[in-house]
Amino acid sequence: MLLNAANARYGRPEDLKQLLRAAHALDIMVYLDVVYNHFGPQLNYLHSYAERFFTSRHATGWGPAVNLEGQDGVFVREFLIENAMMWLRDYGFDGLRLDAVHALKDNSDRHFLVELAETVRNEFAGRRVHLMLENEANQAHLLRRSQGLARHYDAQWADDFHNALHVLLTGEREGY
């Protein structure tokens, strides 16, 4: 799990930052796809040395859910939020697309997605940062404004058409 490392295809961290500056010079916005919902199971050894990062209270298609609840969940939440902040602050990404957030199981009073969005909105109050969800549950309440405040998330990544077309054309139904 290398959440704080840029993919080697982009070169060194400085190369990725240079790519973002070049895109911005051309008025091109750049989003980063972040995956906080699972870490494997192939080639993932995080379970071996950080058991409390996961919980057996919830399951996902990738195994035990990421632990976002209780005392152990506090560290995990802070870790993931700081990761999002790093990409926006240190690299200058214009937004984040959060992968499969329906798999972020959280029964806390303040859901992780709300905490993440509010932290981003507070930290970057003078900057337009775009937050997009891929959410099979299509939870529209995350897109609404509440009490005159800015909305938590700006957009919903809609994979429904793609999934229906994939099943129609291939007959494959697993994951679609």
Score class of each variant (00 low, 15 high):
Leu113Val: 04
Glu69Ser: 15
Arg145Lys: 11
Leu98Pro: 00
Leu143Arg: 08
Gly126Met: 08
Phe79Leu: 11
Glu115Arg: 10
Asp99Glu: 08
Asp90Val: 01
Val74Asn: 06
Asp106Ala: 04
Asn135Trp: 12
Phe93Val: 10
Tyr153Leu: 10
Gly148Pro: 12
Arg57Asn: 14
Ala117Thr: 10
Leu142Pro: 12
Asp159Gly: 09
Asn135Met: 15
Glu136Pro: 06
Thr55Val: 14
Gln156Ser: 06
Asp94Asn: 13
Trp157Leu: 15
Phe93Ser: 06
Leu113Ser: 02
Glu69Asp: 14
His141Cys: 06
Arg77Val: 09
Glu118Val: 05
Leu96Arg: 01
Asp72Ile: 02
Asn135His: 15
Asn107Met: 05
Asn122Tyr: 12
Glu134Leu: 10
Gly126Asn: 11
Val74Lys: 12
Ala59Glu: 11
Leu149Thr: 01
Tyr91Gln: 05
Leu68Pro: 13
Thr119Gly: 03
Ala155Met: 14
Val74Ile: 13
Leu116Arg: 03
Asp159Arg: 03
Phe93Asp: 02
Arg128Trp: 04
Lys105Glu: 12
Asn138Gly: 03
Leu116Asp: 03
Ala158Gln: 10
Phe93Asn: 01
Phe75Gly: 04
Asn135Val: 09
Tyr153Thr: 09
Val66Asp: 01
His152Phe: 14
Arg128Val: 05
Leu131Asn: 02
Ala103Trp: 04
His111Ala: 02
Leu104His: 00
Phe112Ala: 00
Arg151Glu: 14
Val129Met: 15
Gln139Asn: 11
Met132Asn: 00
Trp87Cys: 05
Ala137Cys: 10
Val120Asp: 03
Glu134Gln: 09
Phe124Met: 07
Trp87Glu: 08
Phe79Asp: 10
Leu113Tyr: 00
Gln71Val: 14
Thr119Glu: 12
Ser108Gln: 06
Gly63Pro: 13
Gln147Ala: 14
His58Thr: 07
Trp62Lys: 05
Asn107Trp: 02
Ala140Trp: 13
Arg127His: 05
Ala100Lys: 00
Arg151Asn: 14
Met132Glu: 04
Asp99His: 05
Arg97Ile: 04
Gln139Glu: 15
Leu133Gln: 11
Gln71Asp: 11
Ser108His: 01
Ala65Gly: 14
Asp109Tyr: 03
Trp87Pro: 04
Leu104Ile: 08
Gly148Glu: 09
Ile81Cys: 02
Asn107Tyr: 07
Glu134Arg: 07
Gly148Ile: 13
Glu82Cys: 03
Ser56Met: 05
Lys105Met: 08
Ala59Val: 13
Asp106Trp: 07
Val76Asn: 07
Asn83Cys: 00
Phe112Val: 08
Ala150Trp: 01
Asp109Gln: 08
Val74His: 05
His130Trp: 13
Glu118Pro: 08
Asp154Leu: 06
Ala137Tyr: 10
His111Leu: 09
Tyr91Leu: 04
Asp90Lys: 04
Pro64Leu: 12
Tyr91Met: 06
Leu133Asn: 06
Gly61Leu: 15
Gln139Ile: 05
Leu149Met: 01
Met85Glu: 04
Phe93Ile: 14
Ser146Ala: 12
His102Ile: 03
Ser146Val: 14
Leu149Arg: 05
